[in-house]
Amino acid sequence: MFEHQLFLNAVLSGLLLGGFYASVSIGLTISFGQLNIVNIAHPAFVIVGSYAAYTANSGLGLDPIVSGILFMPVFFAGGAVFYRVYHVCFEARGDDPLRGLAFFFGIMFVIEVLLIIAYGVDYRLVEAAYIGETVGYGAITLPLRMVAPFLAALILTFGIQLFLSKTFTGRAIMAVAQDQIAVQLMAINPTYIKQIAFGIAIMTASLAGALLIVIGPVEPSMGRQYIGRVFAIAVLGGMGSIPGTLVAALILGVAESLTATFYGPSWAPAVSFGLLLGALALRPQGLFGR
C-alpha cells in the first residue's frame, strides 16, 4: 500500500516536472527542430530568465511568473537581434556547422561567467505566496511551487502551438522548417521569418527561467544540467513538433521522478542522457517522426 502511494506520488510529481521541462525545451524545439540552428546556449538563456525574475522579485517584489511574462518582449527582441548576428556571421557565409556550434558554445560560456560576475556563485531564490503551499487529496500532496509552473508551462505550450498552427506568421515558420524555396516562392523573406521564430524561441526562455526559479533556487552554471534534458526532449519529440515536445517532456519528467524516488535524486541527471542516447541510437527521427 505504501509502495503504491509512493509510486503514484512519484508519477504525479514527474508529470508536473515534465510539464515544466516542456517550457524549457520548447524554445529549442523551435530553434533546433524547425530552424536547424543548434542553439546549445538555450539553457543558458533560460538561466538569464531566472535571474531576470529574481532581480524583479527581490528589487520590486514582483511575482516571478508575472515578471517572466513581462520580460518576454525584451527576450523576443534580444533573440531577434541575436539571430541577425548569427545569420550575418554564419548562415549567410555558407554551412560550416563546426563554427556555428563553437559560437553557441562560447555564448553559453560567456553568459554563465557574466552571471557569476554579476550575481556570484551562490544559489538565489524568489518569494511568492504560493511557494511553500501544497494542494492535496487524501494521501497525495502536490507542492504549489510545482503546480503553478506546470500550469504556466502548459499555457505556454498550447499558446505556441496555437500561434504556429493558426496565424499566418506561424504557418510561415512551419513552412520555413520544411522548405525554404517554397517560402521564397510565396514571397516571404525566410530570414525575416526565421528571425521572428528565433525571437519566439528565446522569448520562451524568459518564462521558463522564471518557472525554474519558482521550483527551486538557481545558480549560474545550472543551465548545463538542462542541456542533456532539452536535447533529449527535442530529439525524442520528433525535432520540431510542439505536441511531441510536450509528450517527450512528460515522459522524461516521470522517468526522472521515478528514478529519484526509487534510486535517489543524485541519479536523476543520468536519465536524460540514457534517454537521449537511446533515442539517437534506436529512433533518431523521434517518437513522432515518420
Binding site: 542541456i227 542533456g228 542522457f273
Partner: peptide
C-alpha cells in the same frame, strides 16, 4: 558508435551530455 552514424551535431550534443552524466556517476 552510438552517435557518429547520424549528423555531426548529434555527436556534439551527446558529448555535451556525456560529461554531465559521467559527473553524476562519479558523484555517486
Amino acid at each position: 558508435y552510438l552517435t557518429l552514424r547520424l549528423r555531426g551535431v548529434f555527436f556534439a550534443i551527446a558529448t555535451l551530455a556525456l560529461a554531465i552524466v559521467l559527473e553524476t556517476l562519479v558523484s555517486n
